[in-house]
Amino acid sequence: MEFQELDRDGHVVLAPHGRLNLVSAPPLRARIGDLIADGRTRIVVDLGAVESVDSSGLGALIGCLKAAREHGGDLRIAAAGEQVRAVLRLTNLDRILAPYDSAEEAGREW
């Protein structure tokens, strides 16, 4: 999967596109892992150009969220489509992975 990476002041915005699934999630996860290892623990994943997220994709986001928090940072998601929001609501995962409307808004306080 191709993903854009924008180095903002204080955080990094990653913008994958296409489908976030079993194939495309691991590279994203690896990249976020590298960023966290480098001390870049504030991550925004912009889902605006993502068509679909399957359970593997969701698992990768949760795993990255965990890694970021363990290193004192956080992971936020932005511009998620209605279906991603629906699954987050249903599983109550929106309690810990709150979707922001845009990448700008997600990174505002950082």
Partner: peptide, 13 residues
């Protein structure tokens, strides 16, 4: 479980 996207992974199927 799938993320209710209507689109499921198109690989390995």
């Amino acid at each position: 479980m799938n993320a209710r996207t209507g689109q499921v992974s198109d690989i390995g199927e």
